[in-house]
Nucleic acid binder design. Structure first.
Length: 156
DNA sequence: GCCAACGTTGGC
DNA sequence: GCCAACGTTGGC
């Protein structure tokens, strides 16, 4: 079992949007970064747990936990000319971008704001907290994941 | 709105 | 293969 963090701007897709999906499940389309793609395509497994992070929010915050319910498959929005994330180099025959399905597991009672997280010693090495970190899909260590659940007063 | 950090592109 | 220019991310 692996742990991850995925970012989304709440203005474009928030945890409440996920909560309102049929079966609280969505496909994580639109990732156009190779490192993030590789994590999804090569390493994410069904049952893995994902921290849901609101970037560009006030404050930015971890807001809940989701679960990988379908392993990677081609991101079909990449060959849709009308899609914002259209990539002419990606085709159904030779897909360049991949996605997974995630299902909401738990929305935190209160968001864990970034300023609060910055004070937590056990999270000091977390990729998320690194200055300039832009990875939108990133691995999380188990001890970091556990610490965050504790901070959120949540059990799964 | 500002700007630092980053990833990608393309000329050479 | 190098690296400058550029566009984007994302905290503040």
């Amino acid at each position: 079992m692996n742990y991850w963090l995925m970012k989304s701007e709440p203005g474009s897709y928030s945890i409440d949007d996920l909560a309102q999906e049929k079966k609280k499940t969505t496909f994580w389309s639109g990732v156009r970064n190779y490192q993030a793609r590789n994590f999804m395509r090569d390493d994410m497994q069904k049952g893995d747990l994902v921290l849901f992070y609101h970037s560009n929010a006030c404050p930015p915050a971890i807001v809940g936990v989701a679960e990988v319910v379908k392993e990677s498959y081609p991101d079909f929005t990449s060959w849709d000319e009308d899609d914002h994330h259209f990539d002419p180099k990606s085709t159904p025959e030779n897909p360049r971008w991949f996605m997974v399905d995630i299902k909401l597991k738990k929305k935190f009672p209160e968001p864990l704001g970034r300023p609060e997280l910055a004070d937590v010693k056990s999270l000091a090495d977390m990729e998320l907290m690194r200055k300039g970190s832009r990875l939108s899909v990133q691995p999380v260590k188990k001890k970091e994941f556990d610490a965050i659940l504790n901070l959120a007063s949540v059990t799964l």
